[in-house]
Write a protein that binds this DNA or RNA. Structure first.
Lengths: 369, 369
DNA sequence: CTATTATGTTAGGCAGCCTAACAAAATTTT
DNA sequence: AAAATTTTGTTAGGCTGCCTAACATAATAG
């Protein structure tokens, strides 16, 4: 009941009753109980076509708010929101230099942003219930081997406020969550999100739940066996060096014909030129799209998600979609392909969703006792 | 309650109560209801260390029995069992010739075996509740596109008894189910089963549930992108031609040194010679183990199951385990490796499990109404 | 102003499960 | 052999969560 209120945001009682399949008297009692606990409050009325106005409810003050932070390699994005995901405050900080790995630079910037957000805090927001952080690192749960991942580096310079639950998740997984809750995959409970950019990664959503895996390594396609052919030995992590934007641009520069002028200096420029019809650029983009298609095909052969959403600096460009689709379907089984719709905000929206869901679980867990 | 009785087999009331967390009065009422409906019956008593004897119950006559059939490419295996998986009858038929695809030969043999089993039928078995068939083919549910798979071929010569539910599942998925319910993966709710033999395939179990995928293609690793390297184009289905026993033996024959005598004529012989210390044989086995390790690594990078069980003619040999383990862990993330423990019976045991589970669901669904 | 429709409340009841107490049947102790 | 202890099973009574039915309230339509 409270969970539904948090997921749907402002809702009338009849709406909640319809979804939950509960009768009006039961709804009445439940709402009264939630209001008593400060977990729901009436925020208005809604007039239907006919009949009496329905009261509209939202999570109450005691439901509080969360900090959602995308600790990215170039930007720190922070959103403060209620448990029903109304934005209260947001801030973005551009890191002085781009970080390949999660380390002290990022940790320090997160600490600064959190401190700044705490200053802005308003009593009308209710209590701070959780801080969610999306990391460019593998993330394992408390039962996993945290020492094996880089995740603890987020705390090297960042000392979170005492007694505030922390929710950590891999940034690609967060983007997948966001595409599910706010983005292009809203209508699918099962899909894969494939990110191709500076780094590569995948997030797998099955029946509305993230697949994390035993070591938090589900979707870590940077460790697919590659190269893989008769007589060659795969090299750990090699596929990321092959598919990443850096390697792509090196190949482009090396093979760029003198007659075509100066080669594009970054992936965005390459994409722009290809979109404008530059044949040389287009050839390279096409070839990369084929490689992405091969990765998608491997994904389909293994988890058969039915839908693959492409994101990341290279992946999010609609230009590559037809080729990726064609190659994936030729190599493997039928799969729909879509381009990510959330852009830069995907990750922070995803961790926001995870953090609010965590808070709802905590509140319900306590309420049960 | 009835589900637990079917899953556990003979159980006392206190045992059921403990698992379900229900009180003795509730248990009493439930058992009485089940006995009334013929779904439970007392089959004995169990004396503990102290105190009164406990009554032991089993699914009753009305729970009936199932046919479980492994429609394999060389053998048809049939098991008749109760819903709590007590074997009532079993038969095995060796096909006159080995079938690469599911077709009329297999369908006809299944029809014959089912007819023969029906003759043996005993009123004490209760009603026939379902026929489960494991197929060497992709299988999709009723909402999927059945025309795209070969699964309907099983009915080309086999006309199942009217009104008996049919449960179809891919044979590799069945083997995975069996390793989970009866085999080496009993203690894991999440794992992958990788079969390497004449063909290759994978079954993925997540939280005790089979991952099937949108097209029933989850785990169809025969369509992993391969070869996959800079400058080569993957070929659909090629990895099965490379990893399968036939291709392996061709490579072995081609590269077999004259000085080492005649090459082994089949995979079993190769394995036997390697186990005996034949260096040439061992080299080939090692190289194949490395390739299997690469596939396992790709699997771990994608779903990170924590445990991979190796099965199939080549995979089930413990000889390859260390190399597969070493390669998989080097290329990817920590994963435990085990050798299948069920051998030839894995598939039929798996479809038996699925068929009985289906029957339990049907009975409970009806009972609810 | 009345009829219709949707929302919200009150009253009463049923299903599922619980605890407490008792009865029954085994073992161990006296 | 009788009494005490332990475990299983039954009976009685009660709580919780939810339901339906009926009524009260508040909006629109005619």
């Amino acid at each position: 009941m409270f969970r539904l209120l948090a997921e749907r945001g402002a809702s009338t009682r009849p709406q909640l009753g319809e979804v939950l399949g509960l009768s009006r008297p039961t709804l009445s009692a439940a709402i009264a109980e939630l209001e008593e606990a400060g977990l729901a409050s009436k925020v208005g009325e809604l007039q239907g076509a006919l009949g009496r106005k329905a009261a509209v409810y939202r999570p109450g003050l005691n439901a509080g708010h969360v900090f959602a932070i995308d600790a990215g390699s170039t930007h720190i994005r922070l959103r403060v929101s209620t448990t029903d995901r109304r934005l209260l405050h947001s801030r973005t900080y551009r890191l002085p230099s781009s970080q390949f790995f999660l380390g002290e630079e990022i940790s320090r910037a997160v600490a600064d942003e959190v401190a700044a957000a705490l200053v802005e805090s308003d009593p009308a927001w209710g209590p701070l219930q959780a801080i969610g952080i999306a990391l460019p690192s593998r993330v394992v749960g408390p039962q996993g081997d945290t020492a094996a991942t880089r995740q603890e580096a987020i705390f090297s310079c960042f000392d979170p406020p005492a007694d505030i639950p922390i929710v950590l998740e891999n940034n690609v997984n967060c983007a997948a969550v966001a595409e599910h809750s706010n983005g292009i995959a809203r209508d699918h409970e099962t899909f894969a999100y494939v990110q191709i950019g500076f780094k590569i990664g995948m997030g797998i959503m099955l029946d509305g739940k993230l697949l994390r895996g035993r070591n938090g390594a589900a979707g870590e396609i940077s460790h697919l066996a590659f190269p893989m052919a008769n007589g060659v030995r795969p090299v750990p992590g090699e596929i990321e060096h092959y598919m990443g934007a850096e390697a792509l641009m090196q190949r482009v520069a090396r093979e760029w014909p003198q007659s075509a002028g100066a080669p594009p200096e970054d992936a965005a420029t390459l994409m722009k030129r290809a979109a404008e019809g530059d044949v040389t650029a287009l050839t390279h983009v096409e070839r990369h799209a084929e490689d992405i298609g091969a990765i998608v095909a491997s994904c389909v052969s293994m988890v058969d998600p039915g839908l693959v959403v492409l994101g990341g600096g290279l992946g999010a460009n609609p230009l590559i979609l037809p080729t990726v689709h064609e190659v994936a379907n030729r190599l493997s089984y039928p799969v729909e392909l879509r381009t990510s719709s959330l852009g830069q905000d995907a990750t922070v929206l995803g961790i926001e969703k995870l953090a609010t869901a965590h808070v709802v679980n905590l509140i319900l867990g306590e309420a049960k006792i």
